[in-house]
Simulated scan of single mutants.
Amino acid sequence: MPTGVALRDVREQLFDAADRILLRDGPSALTSRAVTAEAGCAKGVLHRHFEDFDAFLAEFVLDRVDRMDAQTAELRESAGTGTVTANLAGALTALFGSVAVAIVALITFRDELRARLRRTWPAGVPVLTEACIMIASYLGAERDLGRIAADADVDTLAATLIGTGHLLFADRTGAPPEPAAVRKMVAAVIAGVER
């Protein structure tokens, strides 16, 4: 591995390398050596910036959760435009087409990572929990606009959409579901509340 190479924004380079490995090879391939090789730096670089590999992974997961803020804002701003079904289907496809599905598998795969995440994230799987918040916020905005029923339980609907969406996208080695399948699932979940 190269040594003495100046790296700009080392954390981001390492996180991006972890993204690529997760998407390409899955959580079992994610090692400190694989990350540093993918980032094109010496293994010691990772350990200079993080206490250990699980500390790196915990910060990586939380960074990817923080990146969902832009998607949350974009979805919420779409309230009142297009159709509720299309907006939700697009958001779920973007979410699960990203590294989110692989992060869920990674958290499930690594006990120490789960333990570290519990220190700052006491319940749920961070990416999925944040996705539920994003969907519930959007549904709340649509409820305020009268496009879904006033008595709609947006938290339960959000959890149902995230859980069912995760099942549709869970096989990272297969082809993603067709857009029509995602829209059909969303339409079925919100059928009783969409106006």
Score class of each variant (00 low, 15 high):
Pro2Asp: 10
Thr3Trp: 12
Arg8Phe: 12
Asp9Thr: 13
Val10Leu: 15
Val10His: 12
Gln13Leu: 13
Leu14Asn: 01
Leu14Thr: 02
Asp16His: 10
Ala18Glu: 04
Ala18Val: 06
Leu22Thr: 02
Leu22Lys: 09
Leu23Ala: 10
Leu23Ile: 13
Leu23Ser: 09
Gly26Phe: 04
Pro27Phe: 05
Ser28Tyr: 09
Ala29Val: 06
Ala29Asn: 07
Leu30Cys: 03
Leu30Thr: 08
Thr31Asn: 06
Ser32Ala: 15
Val35Asp: 03
Val35Gln: 00
Ala37Pro: 03
Ala37Lys: 13
Ala37Asn: 13
Ala37Ser: 15
Glu38Cys: 07
Ala39Ile: 06
Ala39Val: 10
Gly40Arg: 08
Gly40Ala: 07
Cys41Ile: 14
Ala42Asn: 15
Gly44Ile: 05
Val45His: 08
Val45Leu: 14
His47Cys: 03
His47Ser: 13
Arg48Thr: 12
Phe50Lys: 05
Glu51His: 10
Asp52Gly: 06
Asp52Pro: 00
Phe53Leu: 09
Asp54Phe: 09
Asp54Ile: 03
Phe56Cys: 05
Leu57Ala: 09
Phe60Thr: 07
Phe60Tyr: 15
Val61Asn: 06
Arg64Ser: 07
Asp66Val: 04
Asp69Phe: 11
Ala70Ser: 11
Leu75Ile: 07
Leu75Glu: 02
Arg76Val: 13
Thr81His: 14
Val84Gly: 04
Val84Met: 03
Thr85Asp: 06
Ala86Leu: 11
Leu88Ile: 12
Leu95Tyr: 04
Leu95Ile: 08
Leu95Asn: 05
Phe96Met: 02
Ser98Leu: 08
Val99Cys: 09
Ala100Pro: 04
Ala100Thr: 12
Ala105Trp: 10
Ala105His: 14
Leu106Asp: 02
Thr108Trp: 11
Phe109Lys: 11
Phe109Tyr: 12
Leu113Trp: 04
Leu113Thr: 05
Arg114Gly: 12
Arg118Asp: 10
Arg119Ser: 11
Arg119Tyr: 07
Thr120Arg: 14
Thr120Lys: 11
Trp121His: 15
Pro122Val: 07
Pro122Lys: 10
Ala123Thr: 13
Val125Ile: 15
Val125Asn: 08
Val125Arg: 07
Val127Phe: 06
Thr129Pro: 07
Ala131Arg: 01
Ile133Arg: 14
Met134Asp: 02
Met134Tyr: 07
Ala136Asn: 06
Tyr138Met: 08
Leu139Asp: 01
Leu139Tyr: 04
Ala141Pro: 03
Ala141Phe: 05
Ala141Lys: 11
Glu142Thr: 13
Arg147Phe: 04
Ile148Asn: 01
Ile148Gln: 05
Ile148Lys: 02
Ala149Gly: 13
Asp153Tyr: 03
Val154Lys: 01
Thr156Ala: 08
Leu157Ser: 00
Leu157Gln: 02
Ala158Thr: 03
Thr160Cys: 08
Thr160Glu: 14
Leu161Arg: 00
Ile162Arg: 00
Ile162Val: 15
Ile162Met: 00
Ile162Pro: 00
Gly163Tyr: 01
Thr164Ser: 13
Leu167Met: 09
Phe169Leu: 00
Phe169Asp: 01
Phe169Cys: 00
Gly174Gln: 06
Pro177His: 08
Pro179Ile: 02
Ala181Lys: 05
Ala181Asn: 10
Val182Gln: 00
Arg183Asp: 14
Lys184Arg: 11
Met185Val: 07
Met185Glu: 06
Ala187Tyr: 01
Ala188Thr: 10
Ala188Leu: 09
Val189Glu: 00
Val193Leu: 09
Val193Tyr: 09
Glu194Cys: 08
Arg195Thr: 14
Arg195Cys: 11
